[in-house]
């Protein structure tokens, strides 16, 4: 087993704050939306927690963004534009692993390094999430936080109903994603390997067998 330092401390802090924040936002979001069915908190408390958490996560997102931008590590999210065919092949190979190889005992084709942390599928999905879905969720969340303050922008989008629809659709996506994400996190060489790595920063990787 070799230990690779994959997750620097700012990223680990960001990740766990984000994880906790997402769970809180989902729970309070459900409370706000389904107050007639679920009674965890009052509407007012749910909105208060949701708003506070939202702003914390905005700040958190900024930590992530600045860290990756200032360290130039943001490139780990970007697929290699110069090698699109190879990237496509790698993506298919990774998909085949999750859809077939994992069941027949094939090794994970991707071996993370600090400079190439994500497998091709992770790259696509995290880039989409971090570069578009979360910013959109932040913006629509801000719009809903004070619709009058952002009324001009809301009108550009097509009205508060559209803004809410986008926010709710992303809420649905993130709710489903977080479940899948948690499951995928258990697919390390042990179920807790990836989770431990996100705590310690070190990912344990089986040594390559030389033939």
């Amino acid at each position: 087993m070799i230990r690779i330092y994959l997750h620097p401390i700012p990223i680990r802090i960001w990740h766990w704050i984000n994880a906790l924040g997402f769970i809180i936002l989902i729970i309070t979001g459900i409370q706000v939306r389904y107050g007639n069915i679920i009674k965890l908190f009052s509407f007012e408390t749910a909105v208060d927690i949701h708003s506070w958490t939202g702003f914390i996560l905005i700040a958190n997102y900024c930590i992530w963004l600045f860290y990756y931008l200032l360290t130039f590590k943001i490139k780990i999210y970007f697929p290699p534009i110069t090698h699109p065919i190879q990237f496509t092949k790698d993506s298919i190979r990774q998909a085949k692993f999750y859809g077939y190889g994992i069941f027949v005992g094939d090794p994970n084709p991707h071996h993370p390094t600090p400079d190439n942390k994500f497998n091709p599928m992770q790259k696509i999905s995290y880039l989409m999430i971090m570069a578009s879905l979360i910013p959109v969720q932040i913006i629509t969340g801000l719009f809903l936080w004070d619709p009058k303050l952002f009324s001009k922008w809301i009108n550009l989008v097509g009205g508060i109903q559209i803004v809410d629809m986008i926010h709710v659709l992303l809420f649905i996506f993130f709710s489903a994603f977080i479940v899948v994400h948690f499951y995928l996190a258990t697919l390390g060489h042990t179920p807790l390997a990836h989770i431990k790595a996100m705590i310690t920063g070190y990912e344990e990787e089986e040594e390559e067998h030389s033939h």
């Binding site: 706000v32 939306r33 509407f43 909105v47 009205g159 508060i160 559209i162 803004v163």
Partner: peptide, 13 residues
């Protein structure tokens, strides 16, 4: 059906 005709009105919950 109401999303576009009543696009300026939304009440949480």
């Amino acid at each position: 059906f109401s999303v576009l005709p009543v696009n300026q009105f939304y009440v949480l919950g």
